[in-house]
Amino acid sequence: MALLDVKEMTQYFGGLCAVSEFSVSLEPGQMVALIGPNGAGKTTVFNLISGFYKPTRGDILFKGESIKGLKPHQVTGRGIARTFQNIRLWFEMTVLDNIRIAQHHALGYGLWDCFLRTPRYMQSERAIEDHAMDVLTRLGLREVAHEYPKNLPYGVQRMVEIARALSIRPALLMLDEPAAGLNSSDVEGLIKLIGDIHKDFGLTVWMIEHQMDVVMTLCSWIKVIDFGATIAEGGPAAIQNSPEVIKAYLGDDTI
């Protein structure tokens, strides 16, 4: 059974078709890329999968069950985590608190437990903090656990956002342009980081990325969309030599 099976997903915004009959099947343990020119509909696809929009048509199956129409927190609870193209951290909270708060869906206590600081509350909070510190340690971020993200370099902020996504113990990690804004040395570190995460956490990774070094190094399968429609898919070599992909990225005069 595929981990994620998207079937002819279509999304209209008014009269504009942002995504047209998009289908993809991700197997457990795969590392896959979704690429295309700016405005192609890539982030809209991720927003549909993660529950920010409900598809106009089609279906989204995760672990064999439809998640179409679920709210973002419900999708997260099923085991899908994502990052965003523009970093979305709580900059006035510590790195540790950013990681802890991402586990709100798995709290083992209620409001009165919180007010009365019951044993159930204390035990759950300890478990959440221990897990957050474990994730930060595995990503080499333990030393910045009590820092504020606003005081950290941009590349480290990116890593914190990935750590927050990993803290929910996802089966599928969706990365929306993780290399955006990084310099060349940071990109090299990111490639190693994502590769290590894929291996160490045993995840399926699906990324949107414009940095072709990242895509071609890490991904075994690449899907390309333009104007919301799929124009090519295949392995790195096939995509690099696809006339349709070259045309979409570089224009008619290049082929």
Rank of each mutant, 00 (worst) to 15 (best):
D5Q: 10
K7C: 03
E8I: 11
E8P: 09
E8S: 15
Y12F: 14
Y12L: 13
Y12Q: 09
L16E: 03
V19Q: 03
V19D: 03
S20Y: 14
V24E: 05
L26P: 00
Q30W: 08
M31K: 05
M31W: 07
V32H: 04
L34M: 11
L34V: 10
I35W: 01
P37Y: 00
N38D: 08
G39N: 10
A40M: 07
V45T: 14
F46V: 15
N47L: 02
F52H: 06
T56R: 09
R57F: 15
R57D: 11
R57H: 14
D59H: 10
L61Y: 07
F62P: 01
E65G: 04
G69P: 05
P72R: 05
P72E: 02
H73E: 04
Q74R: 14
T76H: 08
A81W: 00
R82T: 05
T83W: 03
F84L: 11
V95Y: 04
D97L: 15
N98P: 12
N98C: 14
R100V: 06
H104G: 05
H105C: 13
H105Q: 15
Y109P: 02
D113L: 05
C114P: 12
C114G: 08
F115V: 14
F115A: 13
L116E: 09
L116C: 15
R117S: 05
T118V: 07
R120F: 05
M122R: 14
M122K: 14
Q123Y: 09
R126V: 11
R126P: 05
H131Q: 14
H131R: 09
D134E: 12
T137D: 13
R138N: 08
R142N: 03
A145E: 04
A145P: 07
E147R: 12
G155W: 06
G155Q: 04
Q157F: 00
R158G: 06
M159C: 11
R169K: 14
P170V: 06
P170G: 01
L172I: 03
L175H: 03
E177H: 01
N183A: 10
D186S: 06
D186M: 03
D186W: 06
V187T: 02
L190R: 07
K192S: 13
L193D: 01
H198C: 08
V214L: 15
M216C: 10
M216W: 02
T217G: 12
C219G: 01
C219K: 03
C219Q: 01
C219A: 15
K223R: 10
I225K: 01
G228S: 10
A229N: 05
I231H: 07
E233W: 11
G234Q: 04
A237H: 13
N241M: 11
N241P: 09
N241V: 13
I246R: 13
D252S: 15
D252V: 14
T254Q: 15
